[in-house]
Computed example of a mutant assay.
Amino acid sequence: MMRSLITGTLCLALLAFTTPAHATLGGKAATVDTDRTRLKARSAAQVDRVNYTVHELTLDSGTVAREFMSSDGTVFAVSWQGPQRPNLKQLFGDSYFSRFQTENKSTARIRMRRAMAVTHSDFVVRTGGHSGAFWGFAYLPQTAPGGFPVQVLQGGAQ
């Protein structure tokens, strides 16, 4: 009895200190299925390009989220377009999402009426839209494959 109690307590403690793995900006792509589940995507597709791969998730809302991965499996960009914003914390990861929030805190009251942007040498975000038509993208310029066309993110095309 005591041994099973200790084992159970140890398992709970280990679970408490583990973070869920998911393919967030700057992370590895080994668990794209986790994003599909957490974002409640009803379908997923993969498109291979010359120096990157695009994982496309169609969410229940109709929004399409794309995760762009370099050949080493690192997510270097995400984009979305559709009737609702996806869970940006899930797509960006905690660190980049916090930076995005901090950067846009001063404009919180008016942000629904204008596009939001964050531009740093290591992290770029553009997002905007209105009810029923949201869009956006985020990327890490330093981890993007050489010659990656950023306009692919802006147009939703691959």
Rank of each mutant, 00 (worst) to 15 (best):
T119C: 09
G128I: 00
Y52T: 02
V118E: 02
R126G: 04
G93L: 09
T18M: 06
N87E: 07
W80M: 08
Q154M: 15
G26V: 12
R36Y: 00
A117D: 03
D33T: 02
Q151M: 13
F137P: 05
T58V: 03
G27R: 06
V32R: 01
F92W: 09
M1H: 14
R42C: 04
L12D: 05
V152T: 02
A117N: 03
T143N: 10
V54L: 09
V75A: 06
D48K: 14
L14S: 09
G8N: 13
L14K: 03
F134D: 05
G146P: 07
T74A: 03
T18K: 06
R66D: 00
G8Y: 09
V124P: 00
G132S: 01
N87C: 02
V125M: 00
Q90E: 14
Q90D: 12
R36K: 01
V124D: 01
R49D: 12
Q90T: 12
F17R: 07
A65V: 04
T58M: 05
S121M: 07
L5V: 13
V64A: 02
D122V: 12
P145G: 06
G147E: 08
R85L: 00
L88V: 13
Q84M: 08
A117G: 07
D48L: 11
L57Q: 06
K89Y: 08
T19P: 00
Y52C: 00
A65M: 00
L88T: 10
T7W: 07
H130N: 07
L14G: 06
F76R: 03
A45I: 14
D122P: 12
A157N: 12
Q151W: 12
I110T: 15
G136C: 14
M2R: 14
S4P: 10
F148H: 05
R38N: 02
G156L: 08
R3F: 12
D72V: 10
T9V: 06
